[in-house]
Nucleic acid binder design. Structure first.
Length: 893
RNA sequence: GGGCGCAUAGCUCAGUUGGUUCAGAGCACCUGCCUUACAAGCAGGGGGUCGGAGGUUCGAAUCCUUCUGCGCCCA
């Protein structure tokens, strides 16, 4: 076989992905096997592959491929999220740039048609990109949160919750995004510390006898027109005489009362607080307590409206108005002080506009009842979190649930199935008809109003759509048709096995899916949640498009191959830990591929003979194979445990070092035949089998190269692909052999060290003796071990001796004393220094062990195995010290 | 202001229920090698009193308290 010295991934990866897909390996249909199900966290339909996706989906693919190899019916459902606000923004921009259309000029229906057009043309690119990564999703199941069926499910759930009294419409303080002109949930508001200015403004007192005025502090001077009171703390001596009096709002002279409320912090600002219930959540609360009116002075796009009563500012943007206020207040001598001030400003996650608290009529889900079973499930480990400490975060949030505002003032999304009477616009709060269809709503309207003559034209549907998360929380149910066919295949696939997602959406999505699972199916949506960390750059910044610090995912795949990138991501990605991404890690992955490739070249390059070269080779190879099989069992056992506890990086690193170090550096070197010599068939076949097993074991992590090598190792029948084999199972193994080989490895290393020290050529054969002792005997009685040592250390002989050979350098390895013939003057001075250092270490070591063993309480309270082990350590140390002392004594001065 | 988490080699991090010669890996570094699989490699090596202090224990990187320094979430 003529193979290039470097592995090239490009052709291999596309070829195998196509092959797997053609063979239908990704497809899952219910059968008698145990299911293993994952639903993808649907990326935004507008999304393109970034580092976070690659990490997240690599993990899912590893779990899915492993389950498939374990003989389970693995089903990974892909899909995308319609991402209402993000996508609508994209579509609006596209319409403007490409079609020269403005949203305002389109009807809702026209807009939706364009939006679907856009989605079909540009949406879901990311699903194509996931294929490059090797994702073995069942593409035939690709779902989309705006698919017809999915849409219906959302509507069904809305109606269901409404009927159950878990959904209501109400006037509440909400976070308003004046740019997108929509309400945002609390989770969609991002707080940053920003500097602004604190205005100290004097409100003149109506009753001049009580004083000149009261000074309040605010960062938003333009909102004074919406003030309905000034509040002070009832305990505040400074203001006692003013409580109950009234003050006048600067510029407009409207009188407002001075009230007392515990909420007011006497230390903050001047201790007097302007109360603006329509534009501040805390003021809203105070307003409610004191039955104050609410005055909304802002338009939906953040401009002052006529209710502010100050004509010069009507129509101005809130920030422009703020600027003008400064001059106006100064002019009227109302501005007492202006100071710089740092505070947390909330901005819209999507548009980055400063969020305005605003009073608004919206739809809310009552969270208290939904939250209870979802919290319990996690605390009872019914749904297990990996890592477990995310439970804390989850609990804190779940214990402080606030009602969820699920209406959004957008078009791209599921339109809220609520209808109102056109003739009674003011009665919306009472005359709401919630139904699956307009006809259903009409039916209700007729009954409730008692007017049988009402027609569809008398009804008007709510203009708003659902919050995106109010569709994605149904994902694990809806993708299996759980609402429309509750007894269909969902009974097989649900609850899903594991959810893999970033911890940043634990509230947005994870918590709500758990709630939806219990609410609509009476069962958890998944058994486990694996939280991935955030991928950060070397400066610990979250990778984002706006920072431009994210490497181009596709370029990484080009440069290092999917296997290399998967390795790079996984090698440093313990669950829940953020990873500082470094391309260097992908380079390691690529190098590993090359290592595997070259191991293949080596093995396939050998000539084969029916019989071993000689007795020695036969023994050597037989033991090597036995050792490798034993070690493989040990490794598989540990890999299996790692998978059970989702310690995927551990599993990968275990396999990596087993393959690189044990298989390549030791095993292949042991059995490697001499120049132009053949390898015996038995060893060759065993090696191919071992190599094949290694490829299956590594396949979940690095699917492409393992498939390629699997096929190059042997001629495989059609359908005999690596990805559909059985994962190798650990069998019972005897650790003694592993220990013995480790002893030989240590010996070989010591001999190589001697070569380095004395500059003896690697190929120059050396003669080595081991001092006769019971332990030396026990070690080298193992058939084949001596031959292995000779091969690896390049020895002409390794024999036991009772006498010290002349002109040899001695050294200690394990508990044995060895002599190596070096044909040159031994540097006794250096030798003595080395031995003394070693002796000092061993004596210290011995001392610590003896202290332990002399301790009565240790011997009585520690487990017997631990004590026994300490005794063995003592015996070994004593043996070593004896040898060292003896050697030192005999050393020429 | 409330809560959560982190601190281990120059860098990035593992280290599971406290117990094996347990102080590890990769990268970086040093020395020697283009040895007939692989220089994307091979052989060998140096480097950390596990953030500080105290405590529990026969035994602590691991458990507890506290301090310091970071990070994050919520208000």
């Amino acid at each position: 076989m003529d193979l290039a010295t470097r592995y090239s991934h490009a052709e291999v990866e596309t070829r195998w992905y196509e092959h797997w897909e053609r063979c239908g390996y990704f497809r899952s249909v219910p059968d008698e096997r145990e299911p293993f199900t994952i639903v993808i966290p649907p990326p935004n339909v507008t999304g393109v592959l970034h580092m976070g996706h690659m990490l997240n989906n690599t993990i899912q693919d590893i779990l899915i491929r492993k389950a498939r190899l374990d003989g389970k019916n693995a089903c990974w459902v892909p899909g995308t999220d319609h991402a209402s606000i993000a996508t609508e923004a994209k579509v609006v921009r596209w319409l403007r740039d490409e079609k020269k259309l403005r949203k305002a000029d389109l009807t809702r229906e026209q807009f939706m048609e364009y939006a679907y057009q856009w989605k079909d043309k540009y949406g879901g690119i990311i699903l194509q990109q996931l294929r490059r990564l090797g994702a073995s999703c069942d593409w035939s199941r690709t779902a989309f949160t705006m698919d017809k069926g999915y849409y219906e499910d959302c509507i069904h759930v809305f109606v269901d919750l409404y009927r159950k009294g878990k959904l209501y419409r109400g006037l509440r303080m909400v976070n308003w995004d004046p740019e997108a002109k929509t309400v945002l949930s609390n989770e969609e508001v991002i707080y940053h510390t920003e500097t602004s200015q604190l205005y100290h403004i004097k409100y003149p007192i109506t009753d001049a006898s009580a004083g000149e005025g009261i000074v309040i502090a605010t960062q938003r001077p333009e909102t004074i027109f919406a003030d309905v009171a000034v509040a002070v703390n009832p305990k505040d001596a400074r203001y006692q005489h003013l409580i109950g009096k009234s003050v006048r709002i600067p510029l407009i002279e409207r009188p407002i009362p001075v009230i007392a409320d515990e909420y007011v912090d006497m230390e903050f600002g001047t201790g007097a607080l302007k109360i603006t219930p329509a534009h501040d959540p805390n003021d809203y609360e105070i307003g409610q307590r004191h039955q104050l009116p609410m005055l909304d002075i802002l338009t939906d796009d953040g401009r002052l409206n006529e209710r502010c009563e100050y004509a010069p500012l009507v129509g101005l943007d809130r920030f422009e108005a703020r600027k003008r206020m400064k001059g106006l207040l100064e002019e009227g001598s109302y501005l007492v002080k202006l100071e710089d001030y740092t505070t947390n400003i909330g901005r819209s996650e999507r548009t980055n506009a400063v969020v305005e608290p605003k009073l608004s009529l919206q739809w809310f889900v009552r969270m208290s009842e939904l939250g209870a079973p979802a919290l319990k499930a996690v605390l009872d480990r019914e749904v297990r979190f990996y890592p477990e400490n995310f439970q804390n975060l989850y609990r804190t949030w779940m214990e402080n649930l606030r009602d969820w505002c699920i209406s959004r003032q957008l078009w791209w999304g599921q339109r809220i199935p609520a209808w109102y009477l056109r003739s009674e616009p003011l009665n919306e709060e009472t005359h709401v008809f919630v139904a699956m269809t307009a006809e259903g709503a009409l039916e209700q309207a007729r009954q409730i109003t008692g007017n049988p003559h009402l027609t569809l034209d008398d009804l008007r549907q709510d203009e708003d759509v659902l919050d995106t998360w109010a569709s994605s929380w149904l994902w694990p149910i809806s993708v299996f048709d759980g609402f429309r066919k509750p007894d269909g295949e969902i009974r097989y696939y649900y609850p899903t096995s594991v959810l893999v997602t970033g911890w940043d959406i634990i509230f947005f999505w994870v918590a709500r899916m758990i709630m939806a699972g219990y609410e609509f199916r009476g069962e958890k949506p998944f058994h486990a949640v694996y939280f991935t960390g955030m991928v950060r750059d070397k400066l610990r910044r979250k990778m984002s498009k706006s920072l431009g610090n994210s490497p181009d995912a596709l370029k990484l795949l080009d440069d290092y191959g999917a296997d290399g990138v998967r390795y790079g991501l996984m090698s440093s990605a313990a669950a829940g830990n953020d990873i500082l991404f470094d391309e260097k890690l992908c380079e390691n992955g690529r190098n590993f591929c090359n290592k595997l490739w070259n191991a293949l070249r080596l093995v396939k390059g050998w000539q084969i003979a029916e019989m071993p070269e000689n007795e020695a080779a036969a023994r050597r190879n037989a033991l090597a194979v036995e050792w490798m099989r034993t070690k493989l069992s040990q490794v598989l056992k540990s890999v299996e445990e790692d998978f059970t506890s989702f310690r995927l990086s551990e599993a990968l690193l275990t396999l990596y070092s087993f393959i690189w170090d044990d298989f390549c550096s030791w095993y292949l070197e042991i059995i490697k035949p001499g120049f132009d010599k053949p390898l015996d068939r038995a060893t060759y076949e065993a090696t191919l089998d071992l190599f094949s097993d290694l490829m299956i074991a590594l396949h979940p992590f690095m699917p492409f190269i393992t498939e390629e090598i699997w096929h190059r190792l042997r001629e495989r029948a059609p359908g005999q692909d690596c990805m559909v084999q059985h994962y190798p199972k650990a069998s019972a193994f005897d650790p003694t052999l592993i220990e013995q080989v480790e002893a030989v490895k240590a010996l070989v290393t010591r001999i190589r060290e001697v070569r380095n020290d004395y500059q003896i050529k690697p190929r120059e054969a050396l003669t080595v003796w081991v001092e006769n002792s019971p332990s030396a005997q026990a070690l080298f009685d193992r058939k084949g071990l001596t031959e292995i040592a000779c091969k690896l250390a390049v020895l002409s002989q390794l024999e036991r001796t009772d006498t010290e050979p002349a002109g040899a350098k001695s050294f200690l390895s394990g508990t044995e004393k060895y002599f190596v013939e070096i044909h040159q003057q031994v540097d006794y001075q250096a030798e003595r220094a080395k031995l003394e250092q070693e002796l000092a270490y061993q004596q210290g070591f011995l001392k610590s062990i003896e202290a332990k063993l002399a301790n009565e309480r240790f011997v009585t309270s520690a487990p017997p195995a631990v004590v026994e082990n300490e005794r063995k350590k003592r015996a070994d140390a004593l043996a070593r010290i004896h040898i060292l002392e003896e050697t030192l004594a005999k050393l020429p001065a």
